[in-house]
Amino acid sequence: MSRTESVAFDNPRRERRADTFAMWVFIGSEAMLFGAIFLVFLVAHLDFGPAFAAASKHLSVALGAFNTAVLITSSFTMAVAHMFALHRRWRATVWALLATSALGVCFLVVKSMEYGKEIAEGMAPLLGLPFRYEGPDPVHAEFFFSLYFTMTSLHALHLIGGIAVIGGMIALWRTASPANRLHRVEAVGLYWHFVDVVWMFMFPVLYLINR
């Protein structure tokens, strides 16, 4: 019965607690990463408020709102997966996990459409692309878009990471013991919710600012 993944633990219950705790510590670390970048944005916004507000109007609120809804739904399906795992209904758990990652992919597809549109409109100050912007204070609008691309792509990277981890978890599903399955779902779930929460902050800050 005492099958644990790590040799250090003598029973799975302690190991599960340790996994969850580790995930919280990791999330604390991640929160500092996003916190630092949010802080940069905040400072810049204090300095260049009007320019940022004007630039923010060029983002597509419709797509952003749609994506927010997608992520909220994915958090829900992730919670459902956790519930099924607690009741040891493994097939249902896998389906809920698949739904979660599908919603994650959906988010990424919409996000890349949004990027495509912004690049086509010349609002991406990347790789020396020409920056075309009709509006007051284009210098700081460019700064806004720099931050926008940095922040959203960092978030997207985290989402890709989450999808990959869910994929890996499903690939290893057969070899994992029930206890392992449960604590993996729990740990990945925590991470997934965290990435969603980051977006919940990003959406209003980037899209709805002074609108």
Binding site: S29, E30, A36, I37, V40, A44, P125, E142, L147, F149
Partner: peptide
């Protein structure tokens, strides 16, 4: 380590983005 390193990561990302992609934070 856990709480400070990510901030370094953020600043280094911004440096690399600035050098490679030309953004201007």
């Amino acid at each position: 380590m856990v709480l400070a390193t990510p901030v370094l990561a953020a600043s280094l990302i911004l440096i690399v983005l600035e050098r490679v992609f030309g953004i201007g934070i």
